[in-house]
């Protein structure tokens, strides 16, 4: 069902967006008067820095030469996966930090997104059949309230509830900090995996609680309009069995806007995951970004922004391609 033209257009978007993200990374430090990265280094090393050392730093940060030379140098470094060296975690390279942290974030993001979509769609298919009833208004009200909460605030509340209030033998029911406990060996062993899942429960729960209402409400509202579509009226007239009417005629159509929204929502869930990582000291790239921000570690900030943008854009791209399998009409546009 994929046509070459469709794929080509999506690829064009992918490249264009990456180009903009890279440009932001390149121009931002160079447009701000008094490059903050240099300022940070100067204040950190006081006036002991020699002009030679300064030049060395400048070439490290691709700040020497004309703007064009800088741009070329920057792009070359980028294609070699070289994102510079972290100020704060010196001498660790930015790419090595991100490589270590990104899987944790992707784990949080992926699980939270998948669970949210499944939960949202299931809830909507359940209440979609009872529109206007008590269940409907109750579920809608709860969804809207949850959706309106700031994610980190909810994270703090759940941290208090599960870490400090629901206490068994002096220990909270769930761990509310870090990605795994210190007494397991990192690696593909059962104890480690169990520890990781146990530690991720509350962070993922927080993200799901904030994210699923969007999908549920979107699909519920879609159902409420689809129910008046001619093809649903015809399906009723056909005397189809109820499950078929719901599954093939209502849900199959109502989930389409949800599929479209996953891509956009993913970008929002990224923001949520970053804040949640700060709350739960969960060492994904969000936690590193927070640390980088508080320590003015500009190379790390830039690197994380670029990598997460690439991740989201690629995720969007994949969702777009998958969408064409859900909706046969998509190739027409």
């Amino acid at each position: 069902m994929l046509t070459l033209r469709y794929v080509r257009r999506r690829v064009l978007y992918l490249v264009l967006t990456l180009f903009v993200a890279i440009s932001i990374n390149f121009f931002l430090p160079r447009l701000i008067p008094g490059n903050p990265a240099i300022t940070v280094l100067l204040t950190r090393y006081g006036n002991h820095i020699t002009p030679q050392e300064l030049r060395l730093v400048e070439s490290q940060l691709n700040l020497s030469g004309t703007l064009w030379q800088q741009y070329v140098g920057y792009m070359v470094a980028l294609f070699h996966g070289n994102l510079g060296v972290s100020f704060y975690f010196y001498p660790a390279s930015v790419s090595s930090i991100i490589a270590g942290a990104l899987p944790w974030t992707l784990f949080l993001l992926g699980s939270a997104t998948v669970i949210s979509v499944i939960l949202g769609v299931s809830i909507a298919s359940f209440i979609g059949w009872r529109l206007g009833g008590k269940t409907d208004s109750m579920v809608s009200t709860i969804s809207i309230s949850l959706q309106s909460l700031p994610v980190f605030w909810l994270g703090l509340i759940l941290q208090i509830v599960f870490g400090l209030m629901v206490v068994i033998n002096g220990v909270g029911l769930f761990p509310v900090a870090h990605a795994f406990s210190t007494n397991v060996t990192v690696g593909p062993n059962l104890a480690f995996i169990a520890s990781v899942l146990y530690h991720s429960a509350i962070p993922i729960l927080t993200l799901v609680l904030i994210s699923f209402p969007g999908f549920a409400l979107l699909m519920r509202n879609t159902i409420s309009t689809i129910i008046n579509e001619d093809y649903v009226m015809m399906a009723r007239a056909k005397g189809l069995k109820t499950w078929r009417l719901k599954k093939m005629y209502i849900n199959k159509n109502a989930r389409l806007p949800v599929a479209t929204s996953v891509a956009l929502a993913f970008g929002n869930i990224v923001g949520g995951a970053f804040l949640i990582e700060e709350v739960f000291s969960y060492k994904g790239i969000g936690w590193y970004l927070y640390t980088a921000v508080t320590t003015s570690d500009f190379p790390l900030i830039d690197g994380i922004f670029l990598v997460i943008t690439i991740t989201v854009v690629i995720a969007n791209f994949i969702v777009d391609l998958l969408y064409s399998f859900l909706d046969p009409r998509v190739m027409l546009e």
Binding site: E229, D230, Y231, A235, Y249, N253, D327, P328
Partner: peptide, 13 residues
């Protein structure tokens, strides 16, 4: 029955 809005009477998916 053949419906009035028959242009939209078929399930698009």
């Amino acid at each position: 029955m053949i419906f009035q809005g028959s242009m939209n009477s078929l399930n698009p998916v």
